[in-house]
Design a binder for these strands. Sequence first.
RNA 1: GGUGCUGUGGCCGAGUGGCUAGGCUCAGGUCUGCAAAACCUGCUACAGCGGUUCGAAUCCGCUCGGCACCUCCA
Length: 497
Amino acid sequence: MNQDLFLYNSIGGQKVKFEPINPPFVGMYVCGPTVYSDVHLGNCRTFLTFDLLYRYLTHLGYKVRYVRNITDAGHLENDADAGEDKIAKKARLEELEPMEIVQRYTVGFRHVMGLFNMLPPSIEPTATGHIVEQIEMVKKIMEKGLAYEVNGSVYFDVIKYQEQFKNYGELSGRKIDELIAGAGAEKRTLEGQDEKRNPVDFAIWKKASPYHIMRWVSPWGEGFPGWHLECSAMSTKYLGEEFDIHGGGMDLKFPHHEAEIAQNNACCNHGGPRIWLHSNMLTVNGKRMGKSEGNAFLPEELFAGSHPLLTKGYSPMTVRFFMLQAHYRSTLDFSNEALHAAEKGFKRITDAVNLLASLKSGVASDFNWKQWESEVYAAMNDDLNSPVAIAHLFEAAKRINSISEGKESVSKEDLERIQYFIPVFLQDVLGIRNENMAAGNEENTVDGLMQLIINLRNEARFRKDFQTSDIIRDSLKEVGIQLKDGKEGTGWEKTTS
RNA sequence: GGUGCUGUGGCCGAGUGGCUAGGCUCAGGUCUGCAAAACCUGCUACAGCGGUUCGAAUCCGCUCGGCACCUCCA
């Protein structure tokens, strides 16, 4: 924790020093998935951003309570007849219980998170599990006179809120007047629009139409919670009225997060988090990857290489590494070439790390490893600049290779330090797992077999029977094993493609 | 139309006033029976035009692109 971490706060638009409200405890809330369809890679990028932050904070010694919700009471479909709930709609189409839909995609979501080596949050609350809390919040907001009921629905009174708090639009840089002016023309007519006192008002409780499957009893009749309410209710419940960090995708800034702030203020006189973090979009050919764009990659398609835009598959850790090579606030463009470059680079680093254990120390270091380490931290402390941190890892890889070849020397002290630090940083902070680690016993068997084959080939080479040695080498290559002849003998590895 | 972000070498992608990341690709080399791998070396870019400055990719202005949000979306 002796590191000064700076994070870019979306409110205020500048990097601020991170100082928890109650150190060493940190409360972090992240908007999770809506479980009515498969997570795609764009979603994964956002969760990766906050996985990195969670890991880094933990690494620094903070005790983090990481809350990431599961939205299982789907948001309203904007174009559905009469505003249907997404999950309910999907359930109706597939003739399933809504909770079957929710279960299927929740399981899928967690599976994918696991493949990417994302740590599970401390709490993963569901919207449907917190209807009571949401109803309570609606009540409180109504008591403050900042919401009104019409025909069994409750709307948040944005105009009235603004008179009191004067901060609506602060996060997203929006002005209410403009929102009102823009809300009329060329907008789709949302269901219930005519019930609102003002077009900028939003529902915090919605009356369920007769065919709406997901519904709960409330003081205003049977209905379901509004689009933005769950995050306000659950963050308040688990992290308090004021907490440290709230994260989510850039696309949620408005209206979702703006509404969240307003609800929190209206209910509890506090806007919730101190710092808002927003991660940028993953793009494909410059266009945002999204469900509605039809260009979303499923993680499985990526791993298998079955997507039309891909020439081959890439492993989860390659993809993770690829994503970490871009800063979280920049858009990241997804392409074969970029992935391929990341795969090569990733291998370069892991190869060097695998050499660490076998390095021999010398009298003194030819390189300032202490400073190097502090530069890695400096990068991370600068708003989680993982690309720069990784650039430093490449520098380290270069040095490690030199040391390994005897061209450079490292002191005992430095060597012990990096033998500890580099794997820890890679695994604990960046969350990069060694994919080549097969199951223990099998690994030994394979190693033994490989050693046998290598010895046979080297005997052939010694006899200058290159025909035989090349057959061995080429046949191995066909089954995905690459031999590596070096000064100190022959090694091998599985090829990536 | 409004708001915001952005335009970096063949590709990806850092960098915010001078010390000008990093990876991939490509070329040359070392090593090797030959390859592969590894290593070394090389490739010096910041959309255009103008301005500020001793000095700008970095600040300002204009022009031209691109993107995002304004509507469910991470």
